[in-house]
Write a protein that binds this DNA or RNA. Structure first.
Lengths: 189, 189
DNA sequence: TAGATTGATGACAGCGACTGACATCGGATC
DNA sequence: GATCCGATGTCAGTCGCTGTCATCAATCTA
């Protein structure tokens, strides 16, 4: 048995999401989050750079997975399809049925606060440049790489919104494919 | 003669840009900005919502101009061309030769600080939705309106980067047209 | 013209996000 | 068994930002 309860970061993230949902982001203090997690405010800032980051901690693993799939895609695959394959793979690992309620709650919190929306935009921009870099390493040149990455982000957002939707019955990879097909049809017109 | 020196907001913005450039955004306190402008910290926050916003105050006028041009574009014009016309008009009014140094300095400050980059992303996202709304009012339906707006933002960013560039000799509207043409050629391939 | 009103600013107290420095102590290492 | 290490606690401090009330020149009003 360790000196402390395990998974301090996870407990902090869980407490934060719960409190942000209950009282709103701006009405929640970091001290309250830490207290619910059985820790101190100082420890919160050792695990997360700031009060917003606690909602985006999982993003780096997501990004790494997408980038690795794009990097390992067969050469025959078109850039946009390689990027979409990355999104599908991410969906299979991160956006699964059991996490839908969590994702919904998290997204509701983000949607209700401008500071959190700013951070989300920043994270998506970072993901876009990471995908663009991966495409360039595949030999795609600019500005095609950057544009393809931005389109991929648009597909990702669309698919995620649909996946979150109450009435949705499809899984994330399928929604990625549908969104991508619709986009292709649009640009073909 | 008034009770106070005129243009308090302008003086604050000027002092802020200078200090951010001299010492960096995070090493500059709002009290310092206010002092250089001959005002108090409290007054700063009456003119600007927060320490970042002082660099983005002009953005609303830019957005309004772009939206109005998009709204008044002839019906015969394709959505993307209407959006581009808005960007060109904005360039003629805001991105003129005399302001190039100012824009460069401002952009250098933003580029050197993540918080400011977040705010800029947020402003561009707001501009994108405003353009998309204007296009919808012209009868463009989704998702074409949203996608066209995002493409317009990409064109704007590209044109702005080139306009800022030391070696550039072209004016902003021309760079908008060039960037748009390159983008069209890309999607046509 | 005297008095009321307005609007931009100042003064001040206070909260909360975030940081630096140092102490603590169970577990791993040698 | 001594030593080191790493996660946490404690505490003081800075700074962004807000609420509240006072000030006072300009302007309006009776």
């Amino acid at each position: 048995m360790g000196r402390w309860e395990p998974d301090a970061g996870g407990r902090l993230a869980q407490a934060a999401l719960a409190l942000y949902g209950e009282n709103g982001f701006e009405n929640t203090t970091v001290a309250e989050i830490a207290e619910r997690a059985g820790l101190t405010e100082r420890t919160f800032f050792r695990h997360f750079a700031d009060k917003r980051e606690v909602l985006f901690a999982g993003g780096s693993a997501l990004q790494e997975l997408i980038v690795s799939v794009v990097a390992d895609a067969p050469d025959s695959q078109a850039p946009i399809d390689a990027a979409a394959a990355g999104l599908e793979a991410a969906g299979e690992q991160f956006f699964v049925q059991e996490r839908r309620d969590f994702s919904r709650q998290r997204q509701a919190v983000i949607a209700s606060n401008p500071e959190l929306q700013e951070r989300e935009l920043s994270k998506l921009a970072g993901l876009s440049t990471a995908i663009a870099d991966a495409l360039r390493r595949r030999g795609v040149d600019d500005p095609a790489a950057a544009l393809t990455a931005e389109v991929a982000i648009a597909v990702f957002r669309t698919a995620f919104e649909r996946w979150i939707d109450e009435t949705n019955r499809h899984d994330f990879p399928q929604l990625v494919r549908e969104s991508l097909d619709q986009l292709k049809a649009l640009t073909a017109a």
